[in-house]
């Protein structure tokens, strides 16, 4: 972990309210693993006090990329930054997705992305591609113009399926419905591992579908974070067995089985 001043190499709108920022961050790029995140100081001054957590979307050749959605004041300020400016980034933070050694990893894990939850899964798919593993990727979006990273996943060799809430493309409805369809039609390999990131309600339904069908599932959780390094105790996640974990330090990726879904 390091706190570095990183130069912005590019920061552009991708579509809708989604932006992509690329930072010159050699240390973080070198050590980043899929599922890990960084804490970015979006604004100078103290008015917007906390840093904002963003998943690492891609890390290569000394650069890191983040894909973010403008939802409030911090991301708004971030979206106005120009290339050449600097931002403070802290990372890489947390534990990423569990990547089983190539020999034991199932040939086709299932990656499930909802909205901006796509961000960390691209990194994961590209890491899997390096190991010659081609996942199934289910992308959920509100409407077809907001589908994220379809090309990136395809480039990584993934079998991509789409779900849109408004039925404008692919499966009509939530991505959890699409997963049930994939399972029903047997279009996946038995024992496939599921990696999931998206809004809370989506992860809950994905987790319970996986539980029902005996699929191992890892989810990447979002909690409000002040420090991101395990010091403030503001991001506690309660496990089924009553144990308390920190989303920033012990997560943000957790075994869905161990979480109490009702929280």
């Amino acid at each position: 972990m390091k706190d570095i001043k990183a130069t912005i190499l590019s920061n552009v709108k991708v579509k809708g309210d989604y932006y992509k920022i690329i930072l010159d961050a050699v240390y973080i790029a070198k050590h980043a693993k899929p599922g890990q995140f960084v804490q970015v100081r979006c604004a100078s001054g103290t008015e917007i006090l906390f840093r904002r957590p963003f998943s690492i979307h891609r890390a290569r050749s000394g650069k890191i990329e983040m894909l973010y959605e403008v939802v409030g004041k911090g991301t708004e300020v971030l979206s106005c930054k120009r290339s050449g400016e600097c931002v403070d980034v802290l990372g890489p933070l947390g534990n990423g997705f569990t990547l089983l050694p190539p020999s034991t990893l199932h040939p086709s894990p299932i990656l499930i992305a909802g909205g901006i939850g796509t961000a960390p899964l691209v990194f994961l798919a590209e890491e899997l591609a390096k190991r010659k593993i081609k996942p199934i990727v289910l992308i959920g979006a509100r409407t077809k113009s907001l589908i994220l990273c379809e090309k990136d996943f395809k480039k990584a060799g993934a079998d991509v399926k789409i779900a849109t809430d408004d039925a404008s493309r692919g499966y009509k409805g939530f991505v959890s419905g699409l997963l049930e369809e994939v399972i029903k039609k047997g279009k996946y390999s038995q024992g496939a591992k599921v990696y999931c990131c998206g809004p809370d309600p989506m992860m809950k339904s994905i987790a319970s579908i996986c539980l029902k069908h005996g699929l191992k599932c890892e989810v990447s959780l979002e909690e409000t974070m002040a420090c991101g390094i395990g010091a403030c105790l503001g991001c506690v996640v309660k496990l089924k067995n009553g144990e308390q974990k920190l989303a920033c330090k012990d997560g943000p990726v957790f075994d869905a089985e161990k979480l109490s879904l009702e929280q």
Partner: peptide, 23 residues
Amino acid sequence: RQGNPMPRICETASGMLNAIGLQ
């Protein structure tokens, strides 16, 4: 001590509120 239920922190203008509850 387990501390207080979540959410425990919240950002405010130039500050923050916490109710960690001495975990």
